[in-house]
Design a protein around this nucleic acid. Sequence first.
DNA 1: ATCGTCACGGTTGAG
DNA 2: CACTCAACCGTGACG
Length: 283
Amino acid sequence: MHLSTEPAFGEVNQLGGVFVNGRPLPNAIRLRIVELAQLGIRPCDISRQLRVSHGCVSKILARYNETGSILPGAIGGSKPRVTTPTVVKHIRTYKQRDPGIFAWEIRDRLLADGVCDKYNVPSVSSISRILRNKIGTLSQQGHYESHKQQQQQQQHPTSALQYNHIYSYTSPMAAKVPTPPGMHSIPSSMAMPRTWPSSHSVTDILGIRSITDQVSDTSPYHSPKIEEWCSLSRNGFQSTQHMLNGLEKGSLEQEVKYSQTDSSTVAGPIGTSQIRPYSVPDA
DNA sequence: ATCGTCACGGTTGAG
DNA sequence: CACTCAACCGTGACG
């Protein structure tokens, strides 16, 4: 991580837009790209207006058309080589049946039961890690699995699960926005699943929270909205149009310039994000 | 002028 | 716990 020198400020592209190399654009901007496109604005104009390279606009729109999701793909990590869902499931079963079972016994059983062959059976240390990291949190296991899979091969357009992590992505905003009483706020368990994919988007790094705060001043533009939008996906797009109106230029420009204002305060949760990426210490 | 595509330098996180 | 490496990112340039 190169955060030593110019961490939170990102870089400026040819259009004057700010970005963080290697990191996804903030969801707010991704959303705007799709919204503007839906309004019939040409990609080249969107590019200029939002100051995002046209290649990026093109990519985001293409993905949206293909998958219905505005979200970036799952960054980092690697696909399970031996720790497949099936294997984990079996290990869990073994562990449940015999809590005192040793890792090497599990290994033997995986082989004996034909779950794995000698080439793909997890090592004892892998099994130990599975026991520690996954089986240890049984309650969330099922969710983890499906969520993770959705994410990893996020080719699948349909499933609603896919949108689960938009909660995650936008939750920082929601967390930051002082959810008005009576407003449906997201339960934190939902907003911040343990398996948060990747919390440090530019949103966080650059302090886009501030822009979303500003936005939320003028319109109810926080995660419940986005949630709604997402569940509506491509078909029910009308409902977002008022959002768009509510967001008119003023907020848009602020949005685009988001990082140039205050970003020094966002000591992003970099590196510690997995559990509670945005434990916003509101104060 | 516009847009699809890709090399590039970058970050991330499961293994 | 440090490392690896394949996934992803957006930009910028080319056609």
